[in-house]
């Protein structure tokens, strides 16, 4: 029962956050340089035309009404047309087309990072100051301060300077291969559904470099947190009780200590997510993945305001929903969180 209540409360706060995101993006649109009415008018225009266009765009109404209209438009996916990139295409179509490619990489790397981060953190924390622990600590020190795009640079550098040289250098699929058919927009799933398994393998093969870079960046964060909390918990009284009862050390580690040590690591991954989204844009830029980050980057270069605003909104929703999911996982695993 308390879990349901917690989820409802959490959904409510997420909704509040989404509304505040909308309000802030609205004020960003107000503060944009240039006149939005002039963009939609021909070079020579009369006063009457200007006023008519202004009325059609709803700019003659009070700010509060405009805010409501803006919110309604954003929430119903009516995000306008792109100025520069593809003049005829709706922003909604662009984002629906590009977002899944980024989500795929983010999702896969997140799952791998959380899994291995928790595992390595558990091993390091349970065997404090042992050989494995020292090794893991050295790895975490090596990778803690490297942004993802520099990691990709280093991987590619190693790749071209060794005789193997098998990893792909750029792109999300081999250039000559056809695009996967559009079914769900997720290239991996589409290629599987349509039975083009060679495309599926190719997509996976191209994912190795960006995914491993994203994994390492997130893994270190989770690992450090899990190790610290694991050490903290292994010194507590209930572990001593379990030992006194005669449970094996492995059982205590997995069932008693690890279950309590999961939460901080996952929470840490939630906090680091904002930076990871920014890092993902750099990764897509460097590795030529035509996903959301590349769309956003292009829009900022060409000052394509509708795309920029829609991207901010979508990125915020991705971040908020990710935070929501991590909170949910933590609440399911750790009943103490629900009461707070």
């Amino acid at each position: 029962m308390s879990l349901v209540r917690y989820i409802i409360r959490r959904i409510f706060t997420s909704l509040i956050t989404i509304f505040s995101v909308l309000i802030i993006t609205f004020f960003i649109t107000r503060a944009l340089p240039g006149d939005p009415v002039l963009i939609r008018l021909p070079d020579r225009y009369t006063e009457e035309q200007y006023l008519k266009q202004m009325k059609r765009m709803g700019l003659d109404q009070p700010v509060f009404v405009q805010l409501i209209i803006f919110m309604k438009d954003m929430l119903t996916g009516n995000w306008g047309f792109s100025f520069t990139l593809m003049r005829d295409s709706q922003v909604w179509d662009l984002i629906i087309q590009k977002l899944p490619r980024s989500l795929e990489i983010m999702f896969i790397s997140m799952i791998i990072a959380i899994f291995f981060g928790l595992m390595l953190g558990k091993i390091a924390g349970a065997h404090k100051n042992s050989k494995q622990d020292t090794l893991i600590r050295i790895i975490s020190y090596l990778f803690v301060s490297i942004p993802a795009f520099i990691l990709i640079l280093f991987i590619l550098q190693v790749n071209i300077n060794t005789p193997f040289n098998i990893l792909p250098m750029w792109g999300y699929k081999t250039f000559e291969y056809p695009e996967p058919p559009v079914i769900t927009n997720f290239p991996l799933i589409d290629s599987l559904i349509s039975g083009k398994w060679y495309l599926f393998v190719d997509l996976l093969w191209h994912m190795i470099v960006p995914v491993s870079a994203m994994v390492i960046v997130q893994l270190v964060l989770i690992m450090r947190q899990t190790r610290a909390s694991m050490i903290d918990i292994m010194e507590q009284d209930f572990i001593l009780t379990a030992r006194a009862k005669g449970f094996s050390e492995k059982y205590i580690r997995n069932k008693h200590a690890f279950k309590n040590a999961i939460a901080p690591g996952i929470v840490a991954s939630g906090f680091g997510f904002a930076v990871i989204l920014g890092g993902m844009i750099a990764v897509e830029r460097l590795y030529y993945i035509p996903g959301m980050g590349w769309l956003f980057y292009d829009a900022t270069q060409w000052l394509d305001y509708p795309v920029i605003i829609a991207c901010i909104f979508v990125y915020s929703i991705v971040a908020i929903s990710f935070n929501f999911i991590t909170d949910l996982i933590v609440a399911i695993l750790d009943p103490r969180i629900r009461i707070k």
């Binding site: 305001y305 920029i308 971040a319």
Partner: peptide, 23 residues
């Protein structure tokens, strides 16, 4: 704290990029 929670939920770096590009 409500305001701060809201700011924390934003992807900060993406916002920074958008604002730096616009102005």
């Amino acid at each position: 704290m409500r305001i701060i929670d809201i700011i924390l939920a934003f992807p900060g770096l993406v916002f920074a990029m958008a604002i730096l590009a616009i102005w």
